[in-house]
């Protein structure tokens, strides 16, 4: 039955990422959507934080399927992160492309550690 929970989590996580991206872009204003991809960055950071919490809390298998594999997996994305980085590089914004990679990696890792810490550590 875990597969069904993954489906439900994925059906919630992907629209959450879309709405997060839209909200962040609306906050940035029109025309700067491709300057720095803050929307995807925010979704990836939030999903990594939540997955860190779930890892630290050592949740049961069904909860892991629903929230970790399904929700966090679909809330975060590697494909859009890569494409936005490519677009930055192709439009002469190599520094921002590199900054996006470094900032996303460091923030994602930091968010996982922070989440696990908040939930009580990596399984002790």
């Amino acid at each position: 039955m875990n597969w069904l929970l993954v489906v439900i989590g994925g059906a919630v996580g992907a629209p959450l990422r879309y709405l997060t991206d839209r909200a962040v872009q609306a906050h940035q204003g029109p025309g700067v959507a491709y300057v720095f991809p803050w929307g995807t960055f925010t979704a990836n950071a939030a999903g990594s934080l939540l997955l860190g919490i779930l890892t630290g809390a050592a949740v049961s298998s069904p909860v892991h399927a629903l929230l970790a594999t399904g929700l966090c997996g679909a809330l975060t994305t590697y494909s859009t992160f890569s494409y936005e980085t490519l677009r930055l590089a192709e439009t002469g914004r190599g520094f921002l492309a590199a900054a996006n990679v470094v900032a996303s990696l460091l923030t994602g890792l930091g968010a996982v550690f922070l989440g696990a810490e908040l939930a009580g550590g990596f399984g002790g």
């Binding site: 992907a14 990836n44 990594s48 939540l50 860190g52 890892t55 494909s79 859009t80 992160f81 994602g108």
Partner: peptide, 24 residues
């Protein structure tokens, strides 16, 4: 694009599991 790009490929790929696996 919403279905295949944001949905299928966005849901297929994951940044959180990647970051959690590196942390682990």
């Amino acid at each position: 694009r919403p279905f295949l790009g944001v949905g299928v490929l966005g849901g297929f790929t994951t940044f959180s599991t990647y970051a959690a696996d590196v942390s682990g």
